[in-house]
Design a protein around this nucleic acid. Structure first.
Length: 418
RNA sequence: GGGUAGGUACCGAAGUGGCCAAACGGGGCAGACUGUAAAUCUGCUGGCUCACGCCUUCGAAGGUUCGAAUCCGUCCCUGCCCA
């Protein structure tokens, strides 16, 4: 049941979905993509899960494969040991080799939810740049690539300039772009890879790779960058009150993941459909044609689609059902997908403060925080606003075996009393 | 290596002996208005305590003082300039 692309030319398709930011040569790339080819996208193994900031490149890989090309998924085992300075204002902490390996495997597993890895002509291939960068000899490396890099040119790259203005970068980080450039040249030789895709902040690194391969091998490579995902209100994309929205359910439960998409601004709906779903754009246009309140079903659909892609249809259905009940007319928080946990009757008997319960539910970080929430009128117990900071919770508050606490309109937690 | 300016809470940035848990801005959370939207307005934004209050926090560990984010010496780190 693969979704059928509305056009088989990847470049056209990506453009229509708003997924192209910059490219080295629009006509050339369109022509290139008329035939099956191998292209690569790199991911940094800085954590054992990707977050939704990486979703755009992942969708890029997805479409690459759907359009009959061969995606090379590069996990930066070597570059992860250095840390990409692009788009950062301060250097990252260095990872150990064990961390990098562990993270690389976890990330590959997440990508495999959307991209098929096998040996067929369009099967994705997982590669790790530590395999070729890790064994390079310093002198050989310098002689091979050193003459082809101009320091003046490198200093003029945005990724470097930004860091210099923000207080400087280390030699270690400065080498990151050399490594990435080397990767591209290497993948051209080893895998016949001719196009590199990446985030907008990768533009400089991609261009350096193209130039290196041209100078060393006379190769004609191309690059395309995806747009930086922005929010209509100017805030950072992909953050919630708890931090990043991750793809792993341990870090971001499905409910929270679903709600993130459900709560986006009106102005972002259409664009996000293009970026993060596989729905044909004609259908997206129909879904988002309505404005105002009528856009709510489209938001729900968006949340369902993205959740389905990442966590599977079962989880998406459950999350949608739970949200409808919990935020709909009935305020029914009994669905399984609503965040919940056990509460012992003994605890209730011993007397438990409402504030402590909020902390236990993860809706407040401390008793003081919980009391502030109560004082501000944002805390609810079984759908009743509680204004008394000293309120204690007893067996009398158990309704049909549950106690539901809410912080504001959007955050809730259900205790199953046993 | 020399000179110089700095290191303050999530971020930026005031404070330069007591009135400092620390101004202000951003961010975040909550309330009102709404459509689980945006914009706007309002409140809150270290921990513990029913509370008087207590505890921890201003790069690090010390010292001076009745009292230190603020003064002193040492160390670590960063920017800039010079070599």
């Amino acid at each position: 049941m693969p979704d059928v692309p509305e056009t088989t030319n990847l470049f056209e398709l990506l453009s229509a979905r708003g997924l192209v930011s910059q490219c080295t040569d629009p006509d050339g790339i369109r022509a290139r993509l008329a035939k099956p080819l191998a292209a690569y996208v790199g991911f940094d193994p800085t954590a054992d899960s990707l977050h939704i900031g990486s979703l755009v490149p992942i969708m890029g890989l997805y479409w690459l494969q759907q359009c009959g090309h061969r995606p090379l998924v590069l996990v930066g085992g070597a570059t992860g040991l250095v840390g990409d300075p692009s788009g950062k204002t301060e250097s990252r902490t260095m990872l150990t080799r064990e961390d990098v390996n562990h993270n690389a495997n976890a990330i590959a597993a997440q990508i495999a939810r959307l991209v098929r890895f096998d040996d067929s002509p369009t099967g994705a291939k997982l590669i790790n740049n530590v395999d070729w960068l890790g064994t390079l000899n310093w002198i050989e490396m310098l002689r091979a690539v050193g003459p082809h890099f101009s320091i003046n040119r490198m200093l003029s790259m945005d990724s470097v300039k930004g860091r210099l203005e923000a207080g400087g970068m280390t030699f270690l980080e400065f080498n990151y772009m050399v490594m990435q450039a080397y990767d591209f040249a290497h993948l051209h030789r080893a895998e016949g890879c001719t196009v590199q895709f990446g985030g907008q902040d990768q533009w400089g690194n991609i261009v350096m790779g193209i130039e290196l391969a041209r100078r060393t091998d006379g190769a004609d490579l191309a690059g395309v960058t995806f747009p930086l995902v922005t929010k209509a209100d100017g805030g950072k994309f992909g953050k919630s009150e708890k931090g990043n929205i991750w793809l792993s359910t341990e870090r971001t439960p499905v409910h929270e993941f679903f709600q993130f998409w459900r709560n986006i601004a009106d102005a972002d709906v259409r664009r996000f459909f293009g970026f993060f779903t596989t729905l044909p754009m004609t259908e997206v246009d129909a879904l988002t044609a309505a404005g105002g309140e009528a856009l709510n079903p489209a938001k729900e659909r968006l949340a369902w689609e993205v959740t389905r892609l990442i966590h599977g249809q079962g989880a998406a259905d459950a999350a949608r059902e739970a949200a409808r009940k919990a935020f709909g007319a009935g305020h029914d928080a009994t669905a399984d997908a609503v965040p919940h946990g056990p509460l012992a009757t003994a605890d209730l008997a011993a007397g438990l403060s409402f504030a402590a319960l909020l902390v236990k539910a993860g809706l407040a970080t401390s008793n003081s925080d919980a009391k502030r929430l109560i004082k501000g009128g944002g805390a609810q117990l079984n759908d009743a606003v509680i204004a008394d900071e000293q309120r204690s919770v007893t067996a009398a508050d158990v309704v049909a075996g549950h106690i539901v606490v809410r912080a504001g309109k959007k955050r809730l937690f259900r205790f199953d009393v046993a």
